[in-house]
Design a protein around this nucleic acid. Structure first.
Length: 770
RNA sequence: UGGGGCGUCGUCUAAUGGUAGGACAGCGGACUUUGGAUCCGCCGGUCGUGGUUCGAGUCCACGCGCCCCAGCCA
């Protein structure tokens, strides 16, 4: 069995983040030596882009650490789960490239063991059967601001609990008659701890266990214990489970080393911030609505954020993985810019997609001075891609060009077809448009033009050629359907709307009948192309066939021209919500008369406003300061007590004696110790214990305050970083901090930073000595 | 209004108390037989107010804002 090891930054698939920091520490400390994670979907729907990100975190991290990532179906609710979803999940996760080896598990496979664990809890008085009806349970649970009330059944005897639970398993009770609950704390401010339900009765067949069970474990019970059973070490999940962690830890602790569970490794849950995507919804409920209303053709409609939809659209897993990488991991819930996904898709396709030509909205162009067919060689890739390969493209008298590439009255900066102007036909000749034929409605029906002699492969002298456009030969081109796929919603945050369907984008699918150059007939069906100037396309895997070509647009090309023209429109749709108007800040809580008096007294003793306030407000701080007053005047002690010791005093975890702190402060005043080192020592003692003064004495007198010595130090610093010194002299004054920091590092915190700062400043402000 | 979590460029994400950096987007330029790609440059941020400190995104206090929790869902 390979052991996990900390990867080099350069070999990480998942960029460093707060989770990998925890793992690094766990590995270094030897707490775990093999990292095991799991991706635990419930098979109750199709995987979507959110699953791609979650699985990237779970499996990507495990991979980086040479650990394992289990695929586990969290299938504890028979009412919602189906085999077809299991199949979809397996298929999509494989597609993404995850490899779980033989570690493919089902929570439903653990039902028997889970049951034994529940019995163990009952036997130890840690769980009980509650026979309150559902409404009563809800009522007794209380509300977030009102504590719950214990159920009258809470103190049933172990024997009765055992009997009842066995009967529940034996299907002797109707649904809702009883539940099994953990006996934790009905008054806990954490709602999840108010005797969470462990098992409920469900007379329903499970898609895997059939009718074997009529009690089913709840998530809060099954999930942590499934992790434990599998030897999962780091159970990564999203932020909405933060409060469930208390239950998770409770169960792990209670069951450690029992009913076949090892003492170690114990799993621990770590939560990351959720990610959503602009212009997208992913909740199953909402996705179903789109399907049911016929707004999309199904779960794999190329517009859907499902992995099957993305795949059918033509997106490759590589793009999704890179997208997830770039999104990153943090504790904060975030909404990701759709442009990032599009960038990842283009970046993936750009080097692999052969360029061919297709016209989605054909406009005939007749070339009066050209006859016959000329086969022109056109490379598949532009020079910057550096890939070989080419095909022959037929050129003839009758062509189709893109309707949007011609304008009767072009705007400024137009680089396309225009009457009287010369434009390059990509890979072919320069043409000059002579006139446009209009129909009765004034629409352009046909273009008449001529090719410029000698313009093949070179620009004709004395003729300004504006741009290069794509085209196909009318008699050779293949008719094809183009599905121009776009974002499903018109607004970036449809989830925030009362009715998300009102933001449905009717132009999310625009179908065009056009033509594609004949060369594609010879290509594999799954070839992803760049149709030049149109975007990346491939054949719809479902609807396309040799007799009826259908191309999905995977993503548009980045189009700075179109963007400029749509600027106004875009500004409208992307309008940011104005930041909430600043409320006037509330006054801090009033002090009681006694507290106010204490504060007054402190102020008279010379304490700062804020220190005085806190001394008055916090009894712990006040008491400590009073004890210190025998050793040190309060005005000197207060900042240390309030700012440095404050957090520990408030939590009642302070390990430092008043006289020790007083002595330490004195040492700082006498410059035997820098304040920086003093703070570090305090933190060290608070975390790990130890004798503060002994530690301080060991370093006493080490402060470097001698001017000559500091000058030497400063000079060496400047010499080591001449370019920084230069930058400072050019005005980047922030670099003083950099130099002091370097100096502190070099002297292990022993230099007097204030004095060093002075010396450095003097040195930097004066011109360097000759 | 109980408890918990979280606030860094427009977006995402970095920075043992020591130069606020990167990516995407945007803007400008170079190049271009794709208004693509590439290259170069620019723009732009620590939620607020105080405090501690030689030095604060980071520590402290008080505010403000967003998210989660009252399923026998996960």
């Amino acid at each position: 069995m390979p052991r996990s090891r900390i990867p080099k930054d350069s070999e990480r698939l998942v960029p460093k983040n707060f989770i990998t920091e925890i793992i690094d520490e766990d590995l270094r400390s030897g707490k775990y030596d093999l990292i095991v994670t799991r991706f635990p979907p419930e098979p109750n729907g199709y995987p979507h882009i959110g699953h791609a990100i979650a699985s990237f975190i779970d499996c990507g991290i495990a991979k980086d650490y040479q650990g394992r990532c289990h695929l586990r179906m969290d299938d504890t609710n028979p009412l919602t789960e189906e085999q077809r979803y299991v199949d979809a999940i397996v298929r999509d996760m494989k597609w993404l490239g995850w490899d779980w080896g033989e570690h493919f598990y089902f929570a439903s496979d653990y039902f028997e063991r889970l049951y034994e664990m529940a019995v163990d809890l009952i036997q130890r008085g840690l769980a009980y059967v509650d026979s309150l009806p559902e409404e009563k349970i809800r009522e007794y649970r209380g509300t977030p601001d009102k504590p719950g009330t214990p159920s009258p059944y809470r103190n049933r005897s172990v024997e009765e609990n055992l009997r009842l639970f066995e009967e529940m398993r034996a299907c002797k009770h109707p649904e809702g008659a009883h539940v099994l609950r953990a006996k934790i704390d009905m008054a806990s401010p954490n709602m999840k701890l108010r005797d969470p339900i462990l098992y409920r009765i469900l007379h329903a067949a499970h898609y895997r266990t059939g009718k074997r069970w009529c009690i089913y474990p709840m998530y809060d019970f099954a999930h942590p214990l499934s992790d434990y059973i599998e030897g999962v070490t780091h159970s990564l999940c999203s932020s909405e489970f933060i409060e469930n962690r208390a239950v998770y830890d409770w169960l792990v602790e209670k069951l450690a080393g029992r009913v076949g569970l090892p003492e170690w490794p114990r799993p621990k849950q770590i939560e990351f911030g959720r990610r959503s995507l602009e212009y997208t919804v992913v909740s199953k409920r909402k996705l179903i609505k789109l399907v049911e209303r016929g707004l999309v053709s199904g779960w794999d409609d190329p517009r859907m954020p499902t992995l099957s939809g993305l795949r059918r659209r033509g997106v490759r897993p590589e793009a999704l993985i890179e997208f997830a990488r770039r999104v990153g991991i943090s504790r904060t819930d975030r909404t990701v810019d759709l442009a990032l996904l599009e960038w990842a898709i283009r970046d993936d396709l750009n080097p692999i997609a052969p360029r061919v030509m297709a016209v989605a909205e054909p406009l005939p162009l007749e070339l009066t001075n050209f006859e016959g067919t000329e086969w022109l060689e056109a490379p598949y890739f532009p020079p910057d891609i550096g890939k070989p390969g080419s095909r022959e493209v037929p050129f003839s008298k009758h062509l189709y060009v893109e309707r949007s590439d011609f304008s009767l009255n072009p705007p400024k900066g137009w680089k396309r077809l225009e009457v009287g102007k010369a434009t390059r036909l990509r890979h072919a000749y320069v043409v000059v448009i002579e006139r446009a034929e209009l129909d009765e409605k004034g629409e352009v029906k046909k273009l008449i033009g001529r090719v410029v002699e000698g313009s093949l492969g070179k620009n004709p002298e004395g003729l300004r050629v504006q741009g290069a456009i794509h085209w196909v030969s009318a008699e050779h081109a293949l008719p094809a359907e183009f599905r121009l796929v776009d974002r499903l919603f018109k607004v970036p945050h449809p989830d925030e709307l009362e009715d998300f369907l009102s933001a449905y984008n009717p132009e999310s699918l625009v179908v065009r009948q056009g033509y594609v150059e004949p060369s594609v007939k010879a290509d594999p069906k799954d070839t992803r192309y760049q149709f030049e100037r149109l975007g990346y396309f491939w054949q719809d895997p479902v609807d396309s066939g040799p007799d009826h070509l259908v191309f999905n647009r995977i993503v548009t090309l980045k189009d700075t021209w179109a963007r400029r023209r749509e600027e106004a429109l875009k500004a409208e749709s992307q309008k940011k919500k104005p930041k909430a108007a600043k409320k006037p800040a509330k006054k801090p809580p009033e002090l009681t008369p006694e507290e106010a008096e204490v504060k007054e007294r402190c102020l008279r003793l010379g304490l700062g406003e804020q220190e005085a306030y806190l001394v008055a407000k916090e009894p712990g701080i006040r008491a400590f300061l009073e004890e210190m007053s025998a050793h040190l005047p309060p005005d000197a002690a207060a900042p240390w007590v309030v700012h440095v010791l404050g957090p520990w005093l408030r939590r009642g975890e302070n390990k430092i004696l008043p006289e020790a702190l007083a002595e330490l402060i004195r040492m700082v005043e006498e410059k035997k110790l820098t304040s920086r080192r003093a703070k570090e020592l305090i933190e060290e003692v608070q975390e790990k214990g130890g004798d503060l003064l002994a530690l301080a004495d060991a370093e006493a007198g080490a402060v470097i305050a001698d001017e000559a010595e500091l000058l030497r130090l400063a000079e060496s610093l400047l010499a080591e970083h001449p370019e920084k010194a230069e930058a400072y002299r050019k005005g980047k004054k922030g670099l003083l901090g950099f130099f002091i920091g370097q100096g502190m590092k070099k002297t292990q915190g022993k230099a007097d930073p204030k004095a060093l700062g002075e010396v450095l400043r003097k040195l930097l402000e004066e011109p360097p000595s000759p």
